[in-house]
């Protein structure tokens, strides 16, 4: 097996793909958003429950490749219990990590999410990794809208 591929499909990613965390529908989410990757036709729905600016629960549904499934699964673990602002900042950091080619800097603030760094060497797969995050971002923006109209 090509060693670069081992780098991409790390054990943690394969594990999250096999048994995704928080893959379920949330009853009465504060908001939800749907993401779509037109290249592969993959869909993801992110359900968000927030309270007082905090992510109290987050889950996802959808069928995608190992990269997008693992990314969604890892994302839910990373943002649960964080503030909405922290979640948004993780999104920006994550995006930076996977879109900066050849960058070997470590990203301690990203924790487990760092296992997805290998995606940056596969330009056509970057969207798979960022799709759940864009969808979360849309869900958070939905919350903000709601918040602002209250």
């Amino acid at each position: 097996m090509n060693s670069d591929l081992r780098e991409l499909y790390q054990e943690v990613i394969l594990d999250h793909n096999r048994s995704p965390r928080n893959r379920k529908r949330l009853d009465q989410p504060t908001s939800q958003a749907e993401g779509h990757n037109p290249l592969c036709g993959d869909n993801v729905t992110v359900y968000l429950h927030s309270d007082g600016g905090m992510v109290t629960d987050v889950a996802f549904e959808g069928n995608g490749c190992a990269i997008s499934t693992a990314s969604a699964s890892l994302m839910t673990e990373a943002v649960k219990g964080k503030s909405l602002a922290e979640a948004e900042s993780l999104f920006r950091e994550f995006q930076k990590m996977v879109t900066t080619p050849g960058e070997d800097a470590s990203h301690p603030e990203l924790g487990d999410l760092e296992v997805l760094a290998g995606v940056r060497d596969y330009p056509v797969r970057i969207k798979c990794a960022t799709l759940p995050w864009h969808t979360l971002h849309a869900a958070i923006s939905g919350v903000n809208e709601k918040v602002s109209t209250e």
Binding site: D4, L5, A66, R125
Partner: peptide, 21 residues
């Protein structure tokens, strides 16, 4: 295994196929 992952791994072997709809 999702077809996209099949495509990427085969690509690593030099094999060009298409994955998608």
């Amino acid at each position: 295994v999702h077809p996209h992952d099949i495509g990427t791994i085969l690509d690593g072997e030099g094999i060009a196929i298409r994955a998608g709809h």
